[in-house]
Amino acid sequence: MTQQAVTKPRVGLFVTCLVDLFRPVVGFAAVKLIEDAGCTVDIPMAQTCCGQPAYNSGDRKDTRAIAQNTIEAFEEFDYIVAPSGSCAGMLKKHYPGLFKGDLTWEPRVAAFSAKVHELVSFLADVRGVQDIDARLDGTVTYHDSCSGLRELGIRAQPRALLGQVDGLTLRELPDADVCCGFGGTFCVKYSDISNAIVSEKTSKIEASGADLLLAGDLGCLMNMAGKLKRQGSAVETRHVAEVLAGMTDQPPIGGRG
């Protein structure tokens, strides 16, 4: 092991369940981006999901068990990074509340949560990345996913990094800060309402004139891509990390055309 490798910060990548299952390329893009930003990346096998489905369904007991697994698997790292504002928000903002009053876990979760970052804001804010090495010829628009935006304050960072991509034109999405209607289990439990919300969103996306939609959360992306494709839209959809890493060989989410 070289001296340089020792001083590099160690990042534990929390892949997120949706990336693991549906869109592995986002995980590999995250690995590349974090390594390019001067860090080493480890991917603990003992990770599953952040626990939001249980947490948002009112099941605190299972959420706590899942959270304990995650903390145990990741607390050794200098940073814990997730390619999702929603999952990072869960780890950073909601885990501490699960262990309130638990003297053993309270300090552990506090130390853990302090090290958690969403991928794009980690690159921009913590690593100060200014030399994204990627090219994409086209017009893109960006949706601010709710958790990242309002829990973690992610708004400027993805725009700053996308600004470094050669050939890319960013066209702002009107009401980019309005929910896409995904909401985890909400989109199936209240599918009629979710559909109304996502339809509003896709009409704005269409009107933006962009040919590629980006965002930082796979849940929202699958929802919007799924609606765009059902409507026969030509707009394609990708996770922002794919573009930043220059890894756009995979077909877009939900396919083309």
């Binding site: 439990k189 559909n195 891509a225 799924g226 609606k227 059902r230 939900g254």
Partner: peptide, 26 residues
Amino acid sequence: ERFSWLPLAGGWTKYRELPAPEGRTF
């Protein structure tokens, strides 16, 4: 790259396509 219908996913596919997984997991 997507499903228009899938068993047990009716809540999703009633209104939108379900993007298919890439293939093998991450």
